[in-house]
Structure formats: structure tokens, C-alpha cells
């Protein structure tokens, strides 16, 4: 491929020591550090899995159908994100704005699900102080929820920028970097959904301990 063809079809080579955009590289480095951050919390959850001496236990409280819906919502928000970026890069302002707004709405719905779940758990007697399951569960999902909240705010800002014309085809990298963050929040949830919900949902009380009487 000739250099001319390369310039026509590809992103420009940045004038940096790596030839890559420094902001994008920084986002990947940040996401790398976040992998370790979440890795430590997920490992901690697994270390204390099944070690709660009092209930409620995961099998008594986790609502798989509800969480499956919220997982689907977050997954679809990732699709909306990539479509938003696609249309902004194509210079289709309205479509770009709409899809970014869809990300905001789906992210907010996911937060609503999480708020509802936390409230239900608290109602049934599970708080971060109840048992070791509560502590590790709320810390991990709470930190993820905080990430989602930041992402929703960031996306709302991007949608506004796209609507006003501040976010355009030529500076779509701003949205791409925000999108990397959003997709990362999604992949973390993919792991959390599998490890905490689908795998741990059958965890009951330890041998010799009876089930919890839920309110």
C-alpha cells in the first residue's frame, strides 16, 4: 500500500515518539490499571466466597432474572456507544447525537436497576456490615456502579457536545476515548455477572448452619 493510500484510509500518524495519540494511549494505560484494581476486588470476593457465617446468603437473595436484564441493557449500551462513534466519524451529527443519548439512557437504566437491587437487599437485611458476602458484594458492585455513574455523566457531556456541534468528525477521538472507558465498564460487568451472579448464585449457608429467615 502506498503512503498516499495509507493517508487516505487510515488515521493520521501522530507526531509523538510512539506515533500514537498520547491521550488514547493514556486511556489504555488507565484501563490497564483499572484491570488490576477490579482484579484485586474480584479475587477478594472469591477468597471470602462461602465464608459468611450469617445470612442472607447469595442463594437466598440474588435475583438472576433481574440482573440478566440489567446485564443485557449494559451490553446494548456498548452497541449504542460504538454506533454513536461510527456516525460521529461519518459526520452524521444527528444520528451520532441520538446514539450517544441512547448510551446515556441505557446507562441510567442500569444504574436504576442497581439502585433497586441495593434497596431490595437492604430491605431483606443484607448491607455491607451484615456479613462477609455483603461487604465484598457491595464494595465490588458499588465501585462498578461508581464507574457507570461517571461514564453516564461523561456520555451526557459528549451528547451535548455532539448536539451543539462541538464534537465533530475531526475531533471524534474525544468520543472514542470516552467510548473506551464505557466499553471497559461493560467488560468488567461481564466478569462480575459471571463470577458473582451466575457462579455464586447457588451458594447457600455453610454446613451445619440453617437458612436465613428473610423479612
Amino acid at each position: 500500500m502506498t503512503q498516499a493510500a495509507a493517508t487516505e484510509h487510515h488515521e493520521p500518524v501522530e507526531n509523538t515518539s510512539t506515533g500514537l495519540n498520547s491521550r488514547k494511549l493514556m486511556m489504555w494505560a488507565f484501563l490497564g490499571s483499572d484491570v488490576m484494581f477490579f482484579g484485586a476486588f474480584i479475587a477478594t470476593y472469591l477468597v471470602y466466597r462461602g465464608k459468611s457465617l450469617v445470612g442472607p446468603y447469595p442463594s437466598e437473595i440474588l435475583d438472576i432474572p433481574l440482573t440478566s436484564v440489567s446485564t443485557f441493557v449494559l451490553l446494548m449500551s456498548s452497541l449504542a456507544m460504538v454506533l454513536g462513534l461510527h456516525y460521529v466519524k461519518e459526520g452524521q451529527k444527528n444520528k451520532g447525537t441520538i446514539w450517544i443519548l441512547v448510551v446515556v439512557v441505557l446507562g441510567a437504566i442500569f444504574m436504576g436497576f442497581q439502585f433497586y437491587e441495593f434497596r431490595e437487599f437492604a430491605h431483606e437485611g443484607l448491607t455491607p456490615r451484615t456479613n462477609i458476602f455483603g461487604t465484598t458484594f457491595f464494595i465490588l458492585t458499588g465501585i462498578h456502579g461508581a464507574h457507570v455513574t461517571i461514564g453516564v455523566a461523561w456520555m451526557a457531556f459528549m451528547a451535548y457536545g455532539s448536539h451543539t456541534g462541538a464534537l465533530r468528525k475531526d475531533n471524534a477521538l474525544d468520543l472514542e476515548i470516552a467510548g473506551l472507558y464505557w466499553h471497559f465498564v461493560d467488560i468488567v460487568w461481564i466478569v462480575i455477572f459471571t463470577v458473582i451472579y451466575l457462579i455464586s448464585a447457588t451458594d447457600g449457608p455453610p454446613p451445619g448452619v440453617g437458612p436465613t429467615i428473610l423479612h
Binding site: L20, W28, V35, M36, E176
Partner: peptide
Amino acid sequence: FMHLRFDHRMFTYFFASAMIIGILIF
């Protein structure tokens, strides 16, 4: 979705390195 498959390999190396360290910590 994150375009890593089609982006410059340096980004893949960055993320893969972090994944390896993350899995080690885990």
C-alpha cells in the same frame, strides 16, 4: 467495540500486559 483488533498493536500490548499483571495479582 473497542477496536483493539483493528488498532495499532501497541494498544494491544498495553492492555495485554495489564491483563497479565492483573491475572497475576488475582
